Structures are given as C-alpha cells and as structure tokens.
Simulated assay, not measured.
Amino acid sequence: MDYNYPIRHDWSTAEMITVVAFYEAVEKAYESGISKEQLMEAYRGFKKVVPAMAEEKTLDKEFEEASGYVSYRVVKAAKEAADGEMIRGVQR
C-alpha cells in the first residue's frame, strides 16, 4: 500500500480507526475476499462516523483515486450477497 487513507483531522482517534478499518475491508474484498458480515460490520461503523452521503461520496472518491478500489461496488455486492457469502474479486 503506497497511499494514504482519506481521513479528517477533526475525527477522534477511534473514529479514524473505524474509517480505516472499513477501507481495509474494501481492500480485502478486492485482494483476497471478505465475508459479507465482516464487510457490513465495517460499513456500519463507517456510517456512524460518516452519516452524510455527500461526505461518504467525497471520501470514497479520494480513496478510489488513491487506491483504485471502489468502495461503492464492494458495499453493493455485499448488500446483494447471501448471508455467509464471501465478497471477492469485485470488478474495478
């Protein structure tokens, strides 16, 4: 990983950790796979820190530009997946 995660300096340390955990889950979905439950748990935590859709889109765009990974596609795949299913190989 040769990029920085999109974070805001007005977040608490715990909030930063929560957001980074979500983006790490997105990376895992692309690189090796992650269970639907793990991904959605990370996303729910992320949404507690970033409840506004506009801010989520801004952060996701920053993450995509830095990493090439699209968190929207991963979350969409997880929402459509059956319980217990692995999320992997999401198309970029």
Results as ranks from 00 to 15, higher is better:
3 Y>L: 09
4 N>W: 05
6 P>G: 08
7 I>Q: 09
8 R>A: 12
10 D>S: 14
11 W>C: 09
11 W>M: 14
12 S>K: 08
12 S>F: 02
14 A>Q: 15
15 E>A: 15
16 M>F: 00
16 M>A: 10
17 I>M: 13
18 T>W: 04
18 T>N: 13
18 T>Y: 07
19 V>N: 09
20 V>Y: 03
20 V>C: 10
23 Y>G: 05
24 E>K: 13
25 A>T: 09
26 V>M: 07
27 E>R: 13
27 E>I: 01
29 A>V: 04
29 A>W: 03
30 Y>D: 01
31 E>M: 11
31 E>D: 15
31 E>A: 12
32 S>F: 06
33 G>F: 03
34 I>D: 00
34 I>K: 01
36 K>S: 05
36 K>W: 03
37 E>N: 08
38 Q>P: 00
38 Q>T: 08
40 M>K: 10
40 M>T: 05
40 M>W: 05
41 E>L: 10
41 E>N: 12
42 A>Q: 06
43 Y>G: 00
44 R>N: 15
45 G>C: 06
45 G>P: 04
45 G>W: 01
45 G>N: 11
46 F>T: 00
46 F>N: 02
47 K>Q: 13
48 K>I: 10
48 K>C: 14
48 K>S: 15
48 K>D: 15
49 V>Q: 07
49 V>A: 11
49 V>M: 09
53 M>L: 13
54 A>R: 14
54 A>C: 03
54 A>G: 09
55 E>Q: 13
55 E>M: 14
56 E>G: 05
56 E>A: 14
56 E>V: 03
57 K>N: 12
58 T>S: 13
58 T>L: 13
58 T>G: 11
60 D>E: 14
60 D>N: 15
61 K>A: 11
61 K>M: 10
62 E>T: 02
63 F>L: 04
63 F>I: 02
63 F>W: 04
64 E>V: 02
67 S>F: 04
69 Y>G: 02
70 V>D: 14
70 V>W: 02
70 V>S: 07
70 V>F: 04
71 S>F: 00
71 S>L: 00
74 V>Y: 03
74 V>T: 07
75 V>N: 06
75 V>E: 05
75 V>M: 06
76 K>P: 00
76 K>H: 10
76 K>I: 06
76 K>S: 12
76 K>T: 11
76 K>F: 12
78 A>V: 01
78 A>Y: 03
79 K>V: 02
79 K>W: 10
80 E>I: 00
81 A>D: 03
81 A>M: 01
82 A>W: 03
82 A>I: 02
83 D>S: 14
83 D>Q: 13
84 G>F: 06
84 G>W: 08
85 E>D: 15
86 M>E: 11
86 M>P: 01
88 R>S: 14
89 G>A: 05
89 G>F: 03
91 Q>P: 02
91 Q>I: 08
